[in-house]
């Protein structure tokens, strides 16, 4: 994997609130720098601007102030190299699973020379038999796996995951955590993952970014120095959990 540098340089984002004719500062002065082979978990209370942060990095919206710089170039629009997986799978219901996965290759006009990648992806997510099914026939976990495959088929340098596992039941979720980790280890790209689940953040991340709200900002970046696969019941794991919960003001100290 080539070197990747994603820099958030004094990034602020405000939205106009139409009803009250006021402006709401969602993110204020975010500074951070992330690199390849990092798995960044982002936690924070609801409404603190986690999704907004990912949407900024993806390029769906532009910062009000500051810059997002990827490998020296300012981010101004969305592109497959910063692939996003949404909280809802948003698979295109009119396309089969195979066509959904092939979608981005076709859109970029590079399908012919890469057609075999679709089957590789289907193998990877274990849904080879579902290639010709329509998304309406998939379970939630299967749909989320297809959504993941659809994005990583582009081999993005930055993979943006907005609570990709939150709709899943506990068992599917734990399986999927390992699958996502396996995908990350395969290509060692940079992953930014928003989650509501502190355990998930520690279990998966090389770093946990803890955010605070009003206005949204980074209150702490905690490197997790544990080897994979991680033991959720180990002493260090529990210590990290306490530290993060305290930072989120949920601790009992």
């Amino acid at each position: 994997m080539a070197a990747i540098e994603l820099k958030l340089d004094h990034v602020s984002k405000s939205f106009a609130k139409k009803e009250s004719k006021s402006v709401i500062n969602v993110l204020q002065d975010i500074n951070a720098s992330f690199h390849e082979n990092e798995f960044i978990s982002i936690v924070g209370t609801s409404g603190c601007g986690k999704s907004t942060l990912l949407r900024l990095v993806a390029g769906f919206i532009n910062p009000t102030e500051g810059k997002i710089i990827m490998n020296g170039e300012e981010v101004t629009k969305t592109e497959p190299n910063r692939g996003m997986v949404f909280q809802k799978p948003t698979l295109f219901p009119w396309l089969t699973v195979g066509q959904n996965i092939a979608f981005s290759l076709k859109a970029q006009g590079i399908y012919k020379e890469n057609a075999e990648r679709v089957d590789e992806m289907l193998e990877l997510i274990g849904l080879a038999d579902f290639k010709d099914e329509f998304p309406a026939r998939l379970s939630g976990g299967m749909a989320q796996r297809v959504a993941l495959a659809r994005t990583i088929i582009n081999q993005p340098d930055v993979l943006l995951l907005d609570e990709p596992l939150s709709a899943l039941d506990a068992f599917t979720r734990m399986n999927m955590q390992d699958e996502v980790l396996a995908i990350w280890k395969l290509r060692k790209q940079l992953v930014l993952m928003v989650t509501h689940d502190v355990d998930e953040a520690i279990y998966m991340g090389t770093k946990v970014v803890v955010m605070d709200k009003n206005p949204g900002r980074i209150s702490k970046i905690i490197p997790i120095e544990l080897d994979y696969p991680r033991d959720r019941t180990s002493k260090q794991f529990v210590d990290y959990r306490i530290e993060i919960l305290n930072t989120l003001h949920f601790g009992n100290k």
Binding site: A58, T78, E79, M84, F86, T90, A107, T151, N154
Partner: peptide
């Protein structure tokens, strides 16, 4: 759903596509 458009753009669709 606007999410379809965003997802498609993120996957490399131009406005004609």
């Amino acid at each position: 759903d606007k999410a379809y458009f965003e997802a498609a753009q993120n996957m490399g669709c131009d406005s004609k596509q």
